[in-house]
Each structure stands twice: as C-alpha cells, then as structure tokens.
Nucleic acid binder design. Structure first.
Lengths: 145, 145
DNA sequence: TTAATCCATATAACTCTAATAGGAATTGAA
DNA sequence: TTCAATTCCTATTAGAGTTATATGGATTAA
C-alpha cells in the first residue's frame, strides 16, 4: 500500500514538473489538493531525497531538481515509504533477514516475493515524472487527477 | 507490504500442501514456525476464505480445500491483507474512489498504479501452492524456509 | 469421562499514519 | 529598519492497524 504521504509527494512532483518553475508550498498544496501543512513535511523529505531544491524567504519556493525525465517513481516511492518489495528479505535497497527463516536461499515465500518485487521495480523504476505527464490526456489544461 | 499474518498464512498453507493430509493447528504452528495462538486466528480466516476445511474435537485438524495447484497466492494475499493494488482506486477486487481525485479516468497516479497492480496480479494470481512447493530445491526434506 | 482440538471474544502493547500547531530562521522588498 | 512571505524545525495528537496473548466454551473420538 502506498501511503497518502507518498501519493501526495507524487502529486506535488507532478505539479512541479508541469509548471517547470519555482513554486511556494502553498501553491503546490492548492494545485495538488493536498493538506498544506502536511505537504510542508513531505517537501522536506523530497528535498532530502534529492528530488527538489528549496529557497527560503520571500519569493522562496521549491524547484524540481533535475529534469522530469530523470526523476523516477521508484526513487520517490522508496524515499517516502521505504522498500518496494512485499517483504524485507526480498528487498534490494532495504534488505533485512527474516527471524522465522533459517535458509533464505531456499525460502519459497521469498522466491515468490522476489518475483513480485522485480515486477514492481520494473514499472516504478521505469516510469519518470515526464512519463506521468505524458499519460495525461489533458496535459495542456494541467488536469492530472 | 505483506503482513506477518499473510506470510504466516502462506507458510501454513505450504505445510498443508506438502503434507497432503489433515493436521492440527499445533502441528502446523511447529512446522511453519509460527506463533500457535496467532495461527489459530489465521486458520479461521483461511477457512472463511475457502482455502481449507476444519474438523473439531479429538483427531480434528485442518485440511487444504482443493488441490494445491488450484489455490493461488493472490487469493490468499487478498483474503489476509486486502487489495493487491498500491492504491484503492487501482484495485479490481477492493476498488474505492479517492477523495482528492475529480476524474479518475485521467488521473496519472492511478494509471501508473494500475500498471503496478496488474504486474502484481500477474505474479500472485499465476502462482499456486503447488508452484511454491516446486520452487523448493529441498522439497523432499520439506525444508521450505 | 477425558483429552484433544477447534472456535469465539476480549484485551494489550506497540507502532504507524495522517495530520495539526506554534514558532524560529531566512529572505526580498517597501 | 521593518514587514510580509516563506521555508524549516520540533512537538503533539487522535485514531487505526499490527501482532500478538489469554481465557474459556463447544465439539468430538476414544
């Protein structure tokens, strides 16, 4: 399950990608329809995840860091929610051994979940913000949801 | 994320599939290395999900309902954890509209997550308990994890 | 009658989620 | 210098979900 936080993060980044310019968090919150104060925390996390840069003070705001086609959904989801894999022992970036497993090389649950994690990764690490924008039939009106 | 409950459920079913006979929950708990009392509740859910049948009283126990090749992982995971999709609006079996979305037909987040949900479904609805057993290189010794 | 077993309900500790609140620090402009 | 806009930081909170454990009732075979 994607958390609301992660979904909001994606929406915020789509807005930034579509506008292609610096935006204050209040503007992002309004365009993405996301609780403003919650979004502030999310934007901080996105900055730490190197997805955007922020400028403080009057006329400050947030700017996408790098081109929209370089920012992949997998990166964002991992930064917000952690691993893509259904269980820790099947994760590449957030691997953790199971307590109830003696030999993970033969674990059939893990084998199955590795397949799942690879499919999820194929999709999310293969989709960029730019790809998301291009999915929208109403791109020009900037209606994405 | 798969819950422990779901993981335990899968392990219990693998044990039942491997043994191919009626087993009391205590035996399943021991072979699957799952907390006994927690497992009892899980077995009840699996019965409600039509994955096994139970007999009460002395010499009672739980038996897989139907052939192992007919019980799919997707069915089990849905019964334990709910939807496979990352977000409710992308779920087939547990669909629910998003509050922050005006037109889901154009929602780019949903489109991306539909791809993910379909891939997950392809794997989990394509894998049976029998497939899991066959994944194990130590099938004869009944070591699955 | 007894022991084994499933079944049902309650509870508890813990963590996670989805926020909200309040204010400090920074910046550009009047 | 002062003001307003803005990010940034820390704390708090209500509610839900997770992962169990405890107790005892109901059922069944020997």
């Amino acid at each position: 399950m994607l958390s609301m936080k992660c979904k909001y993060a994606l929406k915020a980044l789509v807005v930034l990608a579509a506008e292609g310019k610096k935006l204050p968090s209040s503007a992002i919150a309004q365009k993405a329809r996301v609780p403003a104060k919650f979004l502030e925390a999310i934007l901080t996390d996105l900055r730490k995840a190197d997805a955007l840069t922020s400028e403080r003070g009057a006329h400050g705001g947030h700017t996408l860091k790098g081109a929209p086609e370089k920012i992949m959904l997998g990166h964002v989801v991992r930064a917000m929610d952690g691993m893509l894999a259904p269980i820790p022992c099947a994760s590449t970036f957030y691997y953790k051994k199971c307590d109830d497993c003696t030999d993970e090389k033969i674990c059939v649950i893990r084998h199955a979940m590795l397949e799942v994690r690879n499919k999820i990764s194929e999709v999310l690490d293969g989709l960029s913000l730019e790809d998301l924008l291009n999915m929208s039939p109403k791109k020009k009106q900037q209606l994405f949801w």
